[in-house]
Amino acid sequence: MKCNVGKTDKVIRVIAGLAIGVAGFYFKSWWGLVGFIPVFTALIGWCPLYLPFGINTCKK
Score class of each variant (00 low, 15 high):
3 C>Q: 15
26 Y>T: 09
35 G>H: 03
12 I>V: 15
36 F>C: 06
45 G>V: 06
47 C>I: 01
30 W>I: 06
53 F>D: 06
25 F>T: 13
20 I>Y: 02
56 N>L: 05
47 C>A: 07
51 L>M: 13
7 K>P: 12
38 P>M: 09
53 F>C: 09
46 W>T: 06
23 A>R: 10
20 I>M: 09
15 I>N: 04
12 I>G: 10
36 F>G: 14
43 L>H: 03
2 K>Q: 12
18 L>I: 12
58 C>H: 14
32 G>N: 05
54 G>V: 03
52 P>W: 01
5 V>W: 00
37 I>V: 06
26 Y>W: 12
7 K>Y: 09
38 P>G: 02
55 I>K: 11
31 W>I: 09
22 V>N: 05
46 W>S: 12
60 K>V: 08
43 L>V: 08
56 N>S: 06
9 D>A: 13
38 P>Y: 00
20 I>S: 05
24 G>N: 00
2 K>S: 14
8 T>E: 15
60 K>I: 03
4 N>S: 04
50 Y>N: 11
47 C>Q: 09
11 V>Y: 10
5 V>F: 01
54 G>L: 11
16 A>H: 01
25 F>S: 14
14 V>F: 05
50 Y>F: 07
15 I>S: 05
53 F>N: 08
4 N>E: 04
14 V>A: 02
17 G>N: 03
27 F>H: 11
8 T>P: 09
29 S>M: 07
49 L>S: 07
10 K>M: 10
24 G>I: 00
47 C>R: 01
20 I>W: 04
57 T>D: 13
21 G>R: 01
24 G>Y: 01
12 I>H: 04
35 G>Y: 00
9 D>F: 04
18 L>C: 13
47 C>F: 05
14 V>Y: 02
35 G>I: 00
47 C>E: 03
13 R>A: 07
54 G>H: 08
31 W>L: 14
12 I>F: 08
37 I>L: 08
22 V>P: 11
1 M>E: 14
24 G>R: 04
60 K>C: 12
47 C>S: 08
37 I>Y: 01
50 Y>C: 05
35 G>C: 06
10 K>G: 10
60 K>A: 13
1 M>I: 07
24 G>L: 02
5 V>I: 06
55 I>Q: 07
21 G>D: 03
31 W>T: 02
52 P>E: 06
53 F>Q: 13
2 K>L: 13
57 T>E: 12
33 L>M: 15
17 G>I: 00
29 S>I: 01
54 G>A: 09
22 V>H: 03
33 L>P: 05
